[in-house]
Computed example of a mutant assay.
Amino acid sequence: MGILLTDAAGGTGAGMIMVVYIVLIVGFIYFFMLRPQKKEQKKMSAMLSSLEIGDSILTNSGFYGIVIDITEDTVIVEFGNNKNCRIPMQKSAISAVEKPEA
């Protein structure tokens, strides 16, 4: 390990610069990639946990519908004005939830 952290002259200046660069790269990856992704996952799980029957939803494929029934990992969604168009889908396919106005 000592060979990797020393330069040809025998000093440790180049090794310390390399360590600083590695720390900066790891910090950049954390603050600009991992942290925002975790925040988005928390927001999405909070949105799905607050899902209730009667909520209007938008699916990842772009369809708007109304939640008819909810189970642990699936929901039954009614699409359009046709009351016979009810499709079961995974909760993870929901991209946005809009609560009905009181």
Results as ranks from 00 to 15, higher is better:
I3R: 06
I3V: 14
L4C: 01
L5Q: 07
D7H: 11
G10S: 12
G10Q: 09
G11E: 12
T12A: 13
T12Q: 08
G13P: 01
A14R: 14
A14M: 15
G15E: 08
M16C: 08
I17S: 04
V19W: 00
V20G: 03
Y21D: 13
Y21S: 13
I22C: 05
I22G: 07
V23Y: 05
L24E: 04
L24V: 14
L24Y: 05
I25E: 06
I25S: 08
G27D: 03
G27T: 05
G27R: 01
I29Q: 02
I29W: 02
Y30V: 07
F31Y: 04
M33F: 05
M33N: 00
M33G: 00
R35A: 10
P36Q: 07
P36S: 02
Q37F: 09
K39F: 03
K42D: 15
S45D: 12
S45A: 12
A46M: 06
S49M: 10
E52P: 01
G54I: 07
I57N: 09
I57K: 12
T59E: 06
N60P: 00
N60W: 01
S61W: 12
S61C: 06
G62Y: 04
G62P: 06
G65P: 01
I66P: 03
D69K: 13
I70W: 00
T71K: 02
D73N: 12
I76V: 14
I76K: 12
V77S: 10
V77R: 05
E78Q: 15
E78K: 15
G80I: 12
N81W: 08
N81C: 02
N81Y: 02
N84R: 08
C85M: 15
C85D: 10
R86L: 04
Q90C: 03
Q90V: 04
S92C: 02
A96V: 02
V97E: 09
E98P: 01
K99I: 11
K99R: 14
P100K: 09
P100V: 05
E101T: 13
E101V: 15
